[in-house]
Design a protein around this nucleic acid. Structure first.
Length: 257
DNA sequence: ATGGCCAATTTTATTGGA
């Protein structure tokens, strides 16, 4: 048997309802971490998931952000938000345990809208490391999944020279992400695809997807005990094609059980 | 010249995204 865990920034679950339903029916993973729901909990299209055989743990908000974990098997020990005493209304973190794996869905701040946004992003990554230190165990199977809004290395960038120093690729962001993953996490996609030149996000503008001008900012990071069970990790570019697509493609990691 | 697209909103412009 296998356990598949995917992450997908859908850029509005309501705008993407038909595409998500079709994707679940065609290639639905066991667990799906979602980001950028852009909807309050009470307006979340839960039936879309229940009809496909999933239960959902949800942390939404109006207009912006919003994360969830959908699973074919029961979700337990749901944690909403970083719960670190910081007054932060932005819905960017949810965790739950499924099939013996601690699964986390994060939507890391973009940080590109000005200096205060950038500072919030770096601080948020520091708070994420704090949550791992305080509330998780690197010795157990854990998958930290989501839209990290950081391309970890130049090989995750279509044009590193053009992106040098730009938000999503700065040394400060890469260092902040590295401090999170130094807790004890491995980039599962990288394990299977060291070659680079593979992306998970393409700008809607300028025919970027057609020209494959993207960034690999969506990732699945796993602890050692889970990484040891990884058998594959793929980006589903097909889900980015055509009309009404999200600007992100799903990333699917598969583990032996 | 630093644009182009897309989604949500007390919508016909603005904000945020990446």
């Amino acid at each position: 048997m296998a356990l598949s865990i995917a992450t997908w920034n859908v850029n509005s679950i309501r705008a993407r309802a038909e595409r998500v339903a079709a994707w679940l029916a065609a290639s639905g993973p066991d667990v799906l971490c979602l980001q950028e729901l852009k909807v309050e909990d009470k307006a979340f299209p839960r039936e879309l998931f229940t009809a496909a055989g999933y239960e959902v743990a949800l942390h939404g908000q109006k207009t912006y952000n919003g994360v969830a974990i959908a699973s074919r098997t029961p979700l337990t020990d749901v944690a909403i938000g970083l719960d670190d005493g910081v007054d932060d209304p932005q819905a960017r973190f949810i965790a739950a345990t499924v099939a013996g794996v601690r699964v986390i869905s994060v939507y890391v701040p973009n940080g590109g809208m000005g200096p205060e946004h950038f500072a919030y992003k770096l601080a948020w990554l520091g708070r994420l490391r704090g949550w791992l230190d305080r509330a998780a165990d690197p010795a157990v199977p854990l998958a930290l999944c989501g839209d990290f809004n950081v391309a970890p290395e130049d090989r995750d960038v279509h044009d590193p020279a053009a992106w040098a120093g730009q938000v999503l690729c700065t040394p400060e962001e890469r260092a902040a992400l590295a401090r999170v993953t130094a807790w004890g996490l491995t980039d599962v996609y990288r394990q299977f695809h060291p070659e680079g030149g593979k992306y998970s996000w393409w700008d809607y503008r300028g025919l970027s997807f057609f020209k494959d001008q993207g960034l690999r900012i969506d990732q699945v990071w796993a602890t050692a005990s889970l990484t040891a069970r990884a058998t594959a990790c793929e980006i589903d570019r097909v889900a980015r094609k055509g009309q009404n697509a999200s600007d992100h493609a799903p990333v699917i990691a598969t583990f032996s059980t």
